[in-house]
C-alpha cells in the first residue's frame, strides 16, 4: 500500500539567504509512517544521492516537547486538529498528493535553515515574568493550601502549552498572545501566582511587544491550530489582567 507523493519544500541555506520552494518525490510512503518519519526517508534518499537533506527540528516525536513545527499545506502542524506535526500520520494523505511544507513564519522567528527557526523570543517572554518567585528550599507543605479541583484543572488546561509557536505562525499579525496568555492564566488562577500577578502580566506583555510580535485582532486562527487546544479565552483573560494591572499603576 505504499504511496508516492510530491513534496514542495521550503529550502533556505541560511538566515540571510533567499529561500524557495523545491519539489521532491517521496517514494514508498507507508500509511502508518508519521509525517516526520516520511521526511527521514526522503532525507536518507537525498543523502544517498549526494544532495543536502532537508533540515527540520524534532525530538520527542509524541507531541509534547514542542520542537517540531511545520506548516503543512498552509496549516501550522497540518491537517489533524489537536496534534503536532510529529503526530500526523501519512494515512491522512492519498497517493499522488502534493504536500507543501514550509517553516513557521514570523518576524520574531527568523529562519536558521530550511524549516528550522529560532523561537528564543518565547523563552525571553517567560524570563520577563512567567514564573513564581520561590527559591528552592523555602516552600511550605504542599497540602497547606487547598485549591478547588475545577480551578486547578483550569490552570492545567492553560499550563499544557508546549511552546511550539504554531499560534504565532498561524496569526496574520504574528501575535504571541495565545502563548503568553496561557502562562499568564495558568499562574493567575492559582493562589501561588497572586503576589506577582499584576507585575507578571505587565512585564510579559511588554516583552512580547519588544520581541516584535504583532497585535491580536481576535481572528481565532491560533486556537484553531493549537496542538493542545488552548482556548482563546485565555487571551481575553490576559487583556483583563493587563488592564487591571495598568490601571492600578503597575
Amino acid at each position: 500500500m505504499a504511496m508516492t507523493l510530491t513534496l514542495r519544500v521550503w529550502r533556505q541555506a541560511g538566515p540571510d539567504q533567499p529561500g524557495r520552494l523545491v519539489d521532491y518525490v517521496a517514494h514508498d510512503v507507508h500509511p502508518d509512517m508519521s509525517f516526520l518519519e516520511m521526511l527521514d526517508v526522503v532525507n536518507d534518499d537525498l543523502i544517498r544521492k549526494g544532495d543536502d537533506p532537508i533540515a527540520f527540528d524534532s525530538d520527542c516525536r509524541e507531541g509534547i516537547c514542542g520542537s517540531c513545527g511545520l506548516v503543512i499545506n498552509g496549516v501550522a502542524h497540518g491537517p489533524d486538529p489537536g496534534a503536532t506535526t510529529c503526530q500526523v500520520h501519512m494515512r491522512r494523505f492519498a497517493a499522488g498528493d502534493t504536500i507543501v511544507i514550509e517553516p513557521f513564519r514570523a518576524r520574531a522567528f527568523p529562519v536558521l535553515k530550511d524549516l528550522v527557526i529560532d523561537r528564543s523570543a518565547l523563552d525571553r517572554i517567560i524570563a520577563a515574568g512567567g514564573y513564581v518567585s520561590v527559591n528552592a528550599g523555602g516552600a511550605p507543605d504542599a497540602n497547606c493550601l487547598p485549591i478547588p479541583k475545577h480551578v486547578s484543572d483550569q490552570a492545567m488546561d492553560s499550563a499544557q502549552c508546549i511552546g511550539c509557536g504554531a499560534c504565532v505562525a498561524s496569526c496574520k499579525n504574528a501575535a504571541a498572545h495565545l502563548f503568553t496568555s496561557a502562562k499568564v492564566t495558568h499562574l493567575a488562577l492559582l493562589p501561588q501566582g497572586q503576589p506577582e500577578r499584576a507585575r507578571r502580566v505587565v512585564r510579559m506583555v511588554e516583552q512580547m511587544d519588544e520581541e516584535g510580535f504583532g497585535a491580536c485582532s481576535n481572528e481565532g486562527e491560533c486556537e484553531a491550530v493549537c496542538p493542545k487546544e488552548i482556548s482563546i479565552s485565555n487571551i481575553a483573560r490576559m487583556n483583563r489582567e493587563y488592564l487591571k494591572a495598568t490601571l492600578a499603576g503597575e
Binding site: 520561590v134 487547598p146 478547588p148 479541583k149 495558568h186
Partner: peptide, 22 residues
Amino acid sequence: VNIIDQCVAQGVPFAREYGGLL
C-alpha cells in the same frame, strides 16, 4: 517530600481531589 512542596509552590498544577488536596 520537599520536592512536592517545592513544585506546588512554583504553581505546578498537580491533580487534586474535590476537597482541594493533592
